[in-house]
């Protein structure tokens, strides 16, 4: 997950007649579910769109360390601390695979990081929300990783081989995180009144940001058509959001918590839950940089990078010296 509002690097889908021979062959592969691999020919716009999507996803994993790291030092038991550390370590690992997947498309990790730090690339809106109490850590695992899984399970079938394989691997770990998150919030919901209050507060605050993770409604999603034709995107935002709501509402009920949206109601006819639209103006504010934590998150990331410059320089210089000594000795 964690890719939203990916601007497809082209306007409109070409008809077969408009395509060149090469483009037709490419599209045939996609239509026959043959994966595109790094050395295969691909349209420039396909490459550019994927770099944007995979890069945003990678950045999200990296920035996503911050709201969880916010509670590592305050985790209430040794086991919870260990679980959270393992999770954050996994997220950073996901960042690595994804940057590597982007590298197979010819874009370096350093360049992607530069674009992020210059504000020219984004990460998922969800990580611009704060983690304010311990139940948030459970809720992040359960709702945020849960929403990510819904999206990523679909993306396992994405057309670009390295991205698809990264998703398969990442999904396994994310499912584990979601279960652990649910277990953590279950302890809170079934705990003392004060713990239950924290759990309710977490669900109330994170519900709408979580369902915003799927991006705008299909009617307002301008970039989807070409991405769907290329199978970079496999299901629409609204389909994925509905799937997430349907799986999550019974889980909230099981916890004995109040539903965070009075609009949630089972719709017999549709066979799905109805729910209220999030406040999309808030979503667009967050995307534009005006979420509760945007400035702090980016400041923290830039500071980590800038403060680490001497370390990266030092290690590079050492590697150079070592190589030179080896050559001199030969």
């Amino acid at each position: 997950m964690y890719a939203q509002m990916i601007k497809t690097a082209r306007s409109g889908v070409k008809t077969r007649e408009e395509m060149t021979e090469q483009e037709r062959e490419f599209q045939d592969k996609i239509d026959n579910d043959i994966k595109i691999e790094p050395r295969d020919w691909m349209p420039d716009d396909y490459r550019a769109t994927l770099i944007r999507q995979i890069g945003q996803h990678a950045h999200s994993e990296v920035v996503g360390q911050l709201p969880e790291g916010n509670w590592i030092t305050r985790a209430p038991t040794l086991e919870r601390k260990a679980i959270l550390l393992a999770k954050v370590q996994d997220e950073a690992g996901h960042g690595l695979y994804l940057y590597s997947a982007a590298e197979t498309l010819g874009e370096s990790r350093d360049e992607l990081i530069r674009l992020l730090h210059e504000g020219r690339m984004k990460y998922s809106s969800i990580f611009n929300y704060p983690t304010l109490n311990w139940a948030d850590i459970g809720a992040v695992g359960w709702l945020v990783d849960g929403a990510a899984i819904v999206n990523q399970v679909a993306l396992q079938r994405t057309s670009y081989g390295p991205y698809s394989r990264a998703m398969i691997r990442i999904c396994k770990e994310e499912s584990f995180h979601a279960r652990q998150g649910y277990h953590a919030i279950m302890k809170m919901a079934f705990g003392t009144p004060e713990q239950k209050r924290q759990a309710q507060d977490a669900v109330n605050r994170l519900w709408f940001p979580a369902i915003m993770m799927f991006g705008p409604n299909d009617s307002a999603s301008t970039h989807s058509e070409q991405s769907m034709a290329w199978k970079i995107k496999v299901k629409s935002n609204d389909e994925l959001r509905q799937q997430f709501v349907d799986q999550t509402v019974p889980q909230i009920e099981y916890l004995g918590l109040d539903l965070p949206d009075p609009g949630i109601k089972w719709n017999e006819e549709r066979g799905h839950y109805d729910f209220s639209d999030p406040d999309w103006s808030e979503f667009f504010d967050v995307i534009k940089g005006n979420g509760p934590c945007n400035v702090d998150r980016m400041t923290a990331r830039r500071k980590a990078w800038d403060d680490g410059q001497w370390v990266r320089d030092g290690l590079l210089e050492h590697a150079r010296k070592k190589a030179a000594r080896k050559v001199a000795a030969e």
């Binding site: 360390q65 911050l66 590592i72 601390k81 690595l96 923290a300 403060d307 680490g308 410059q309």
Partner: peptide, 13 residues
Amino acid sequence: SEWCGHAPVLEED
């Protein structure tokens, strides 16, 4: 663990 998310490079995180 205080370093989480603030290391010089992702491998170090």
